[in-house]
């Protein structure tokens, strides 16, 4: 913040616009998020303790008046249900596993790409960055759909393999976990490349030169200098992939098979097929609890990189 006369510009504007203007400017975005982002979580939390009913809305009230007394009825059964039925624990576990491995694969693919873009000529860098961002602007659903045509039994890969005589039988790839991994890594790759690039492009070349001057091989330099310095970018990219993938619904629904268990799909089915809103809410609450650690990690990485750049 620049301070020409000891007071920041923000402070000066803050003082000038008056209490009314201030509460308006701050209050509008703040209250919008409180009402449409924060309170909804409280509602989910509340309904996760309700009982499923065949009614409109399909859940019981927590507070009831009985003989002039207010009665609080908490049903822990939804959470008990999540523990008793293997399906849910397996789905959470397999979501975390899928998210972990797809984050790792995305990191391995994204790193050399981000590294290349960060170190290429200015002109080419602009074009390549545009090519990374371009798919992100086109429909996500349709890009996942594209993989169906490529992976299915009479799809492009099998047609090529069979016409080259590499296999005589088509390989089953659709409706497998393999297809889910391909779809996830494919869609989330730009989210990994961009933070990595932002980090690597800031890398001070003189550090690499110093390392080379002191006799380190390029590989040693990479592992001792570049990799540790790119840690914030790696963490930010990994969290941007990991967190949404845990709750991913579209990719397992389109590319996965009936035995592809992912918690996003389970929540969707609980809600849309079984119409059990309380159980769906409990599923969401447990998912949120599992995601708190990675979300905090990401915020810290963001703050670290914001602090480093200013």
């Amino acid at each position: 913040m620049s301070k020409t006369n000891g007071i920041s510009i923000g402070r000066r504007i803050f003082n000038r616009i008056g209490t009314y203007g201030r509460s308006l400017v701050i209050g509008v975005p703040l209250w919008w998020l409180i009402i449409f982002f924060l309170i909804p979580f409280a509602v989910v939390f509340k309904i996760s303790f309700a009982e499923s009913l065949i009614a409109r809305p399909p859940y019981s009230k927590l507070l009831e008046w009985k003989d002039g007394l207010m009665v609080l009825k908490l049903h822990l059964s939804n959470y008990g249900y999540l523990i008793d039925d293997d399906l849910y624990i397996l789905a959470y576990w397999s979501s975390i596993k899928v998210a972990f491995f797809s984050t790792l694969i995305a990191l391995l693919i994204a790193y050399p790409m981000a590294y290349y873009i960060a170190r290429t000529t200015e002109r080419r860098r602009g074009v390549l960055l545009m090519l990374i961002i371009l798919p992100f602007w086109t429909s996500f659903l349709l890009r996942v759909y594209a993989w169906i045509g490529i992976l299915k039994t009479n799809g492009i890969i099998n047609n090529v393999l069979m016409s080259l005589g590499i296999t005589s039988e088509p390989i089953v790839m659709m409706q497998t976990n393999f297809a889910v991994y391909v779809g996830i890594v494919y869609t989330y790759l730009p989210f990994m490349i961009l933070p990595l690039f932002t980090n690597l492009v800031k890398l001070d070349n003189s550090l690499l030169e110093a390392s080379a001057d002191l006799g380190a091989s390029p590989i040693t330099t990479f592992f001792k200098v570049t990799l540790p310095l790119s840690m914030p970018g790696m963490i930010a990219g990994s969290m941007l992939v990991f967190i949404p993938v845990v709750g991913e619904f579209v990719i397992p629904a389109l590319l996965g098979g009936p035995d592809t268990l992912m918690i996003g799909k389970v929540l969707w089915n609980e809600f849309f097929s079984n119409r059990d809103w309380p159980v769906a809410s409990a599923v969401a609450i447990v998912m949120l609890v599992l995601l708190i650690v990675p979300i905090v990690l990401m915020r810290n990485a963001q703050q670290a990189s914001a602090g480093a750049s200013s």
Partner: peptide, 16 residues
């Protein structure tokens, strides 16, 4: 909301 899974945002807003 940048990282929050869609299913959670969707469900919570519907319940709201």
């Amino acid at each position: 909301p940048l990282v929050m899974p869609d299913v959670i945002i969707g469900l919570s807003l519907l319940l709201l």
